[in-house]
Computed example of a mutant assay.
Amino acid sequence: MSRPFTVLLVEDEPADAELFQDLLAEVAADIRVEHAENGQAALDLLQRPGAQRPDLIVLDLNMPVMNGHDFLSQAKAVADLRAIPVMVLSTSDHPDDIHRAYDAHAGGYVVKPGSYQEYTQVLDTVQAYWRGLVRLPRLEDLAR
C-alpha cells in the first residue's frame, strides 16, 4: 500500500490555511496536508528526527518569525530537503518576489486567486500537475 501524497502548507494566516485545506479536499480528498505557521516552524518540522518528507511544500512569502524567502533559501541549502519541490502561493505579484523565489529554486510561483471558484480551479490544476503530470523523486530514493 502506498502512502498518501502529502503537502506541507507553510502559511501564517489561519483563515487562509483553512481555506486552502477545505478547497484542496474538494478537488483531491486523498491528499494529506500538514501545516506550519511560519518558515522556522516548517524547517523544525522537516528536520525533526524521523520526520516524513512531504511530496510538495506550498509556501506563503509574508510571514512572521521566518518569511518564505528565508525559508526557501535555508531549505534548499540542506541536502536532505533540496529535492522537495516548493511552490510559492502568495498574494504578491511583484516581479522582485517572483524572481527572488525562482532564484532560490522555487519549483513554481502562483498568485493567490481572488475568488472561491478561481482558487478551486488553481488547486485542482496544482494537484493534477504535482501529483500526476510531473515525475517527482521517490522519497525513499532521496535517503541515498
Rank of each mutant, 00 (worst) to 15 (best):
L81Q: 04
R3M: 12
D70H: 14
D93Y: 06
P49G: 07
R138I: 08
P49S: 07
L45K: 13
T125K: 12
A17N: 05
D124F: 09
G50D: 09
P14C: 09
Q40K: 15
L9D: 02
E11G: 05
E140M: 07
V88T: 02
A128T: 10
A104W: 01
Q47K: 10
L133W: 11
D70L: 13
I98A: 05
Y129V: 11
Y119G: 01
G108W: 06
I31E: 00
A77H: 08
E37T: 15
E140C: 08
F71K: 01
A83C: 08
T6A: 10
F71H: 02
G132Y: 03
D55C: 08
D70S: 15
S90F: 10
E11K: 06
D12I: 13
P113K: 11
D93V: 04
D97S: 11
Q52K: 07
V122K: 02
V78M: 12
T91H: 07
R48F: 07
H35R: 13
Y102K: 09
A29L: 07
A143F: 03
H94T: 12
P4N: 13
L23R: 04
E18F: 14
P113H: 04
D97P: 03
Q127T: 15
V134Y: 12
D96P: 00
R100Y: 03
D60A: 08
V86P: 00
V78A: 11
P95F: 13
V126I: 11
A42N: 00
D97F: 02
L81H: 04
L9F: 11
A128H: 11
A83W: 08
V126C: 02
K112T: 06
S73I: 07
